[in-house]
């Protein structure tokens, strides 16, 4: 059996506990194993972003624990947590993923630089990552000169750069047309298959959901269903 990479245990998030409490996520148990390709779906406001943020250590659960690759996130100090994210988790957001003043190459190289990778090695890796997402011809373009789909692919390349265990993506295709969305999903699926990287992404898009091998549905902050499927 593959090893557990994400273990969300009894995770609860309550906003405004004193005034008008919002139970964004309630008592969620999720186990995800290495190499899974999981879609997180549910109506708007069901808690998808909240759950993803807690799994990525961007937000602290009100109750429960999140264990990533054996590390309990709530026990890490703020700076340790940032360092943990740098080395173990890749993020792709809906928009504003890239540093606007840096070129594609520099954006992808940035995390590697934060990890103090030597220049030669870094440049080689950046180039191969941009090849993986089919953007080797855009290495010197700034985000503003790229389409939304191209920006998201660079974001995926950047998320991959530090060789993370998991990539968390919150509605990565929400701003893309269906062709770009399909293209992005194909790249993610390829990386998942070839490099055994675990993907967990939230989405509203039916066509994107079909590409997942496992679909977790949230309703009102609770897991409503959790099913395996054959991607089409």
């Amino acid at each position: 059996m593959a090893k557990t990479i994400i273990d969300a245990h009894n995770v609860t998030k309550t906003y405004n506990p004193e005034k008008v409490p919002v139970y964004a996520v309630q008592d969620v148990h999720v186990h995800i194993e290495e190499g899974e390709f999981v879609a997180l779906v549910g109506p708007s406001g069901s808690g998808k972003s909240t759950l993803l943020n807690m799994m990525g250590g961007l937000d602290e659960p009100t109750k429960g624990s999140v264990i990533i690759d054996g590390v309990e996130l709530t026990e890490l100090s703020e700076n340790k947590l940032i360092d943990f994210r740098l080395h173990n988790i890749g993020f792709v957001f809906q928009a504003f993923n890239l540093i606007p003043v840096l070129t594609a190459k520099e954006n992808v190289g940035f995390v590697l630089q934060l990890q103090h990778m030597p220049k030669k090695e870094r440049e080689k890796r950046v180039l191969s990552l941009l090849e993986e997402v089919d953007l080797e011809d855009k290495i010197d373009s700034k985000p503003g000169e790229l389409s939304g789909g191209q920006q998201q692919r660079i974001a995926v390349a950047r998320a991959l750069a530090s060789k993370p265990k998991i990539i968390l993506a919150d509605e990565p295709t929400a701003n893309l047309d269906s062709k770009s969305a399909a293209n992005l999903l194909n790249i993610m699926a390829k990386l998942n298959k070839e490099e055994n990287i675990t993907f967990l992404f939230s989405t509203h898009d039916q066509r994107v959901i079909k590409k997942a091998r496992r679909v977790i549905t949230l309703v009102d902050g609770k897991v409503d269903s959790d099913v395996q499927q054959t991607p089409t």
Binding site: L58, I82, D83, F91, F93, N97
Partner: peptide, 13 residues
């Protein structure tokens, strides 16, 4: 948002 993203991808405070 950009600063939030920077913190998320591993730029410490």
């Amino acid at each position: 948002r950009e600063l939030g993203m920077l913190m998320a991808i591993g730029l410490n405070k």
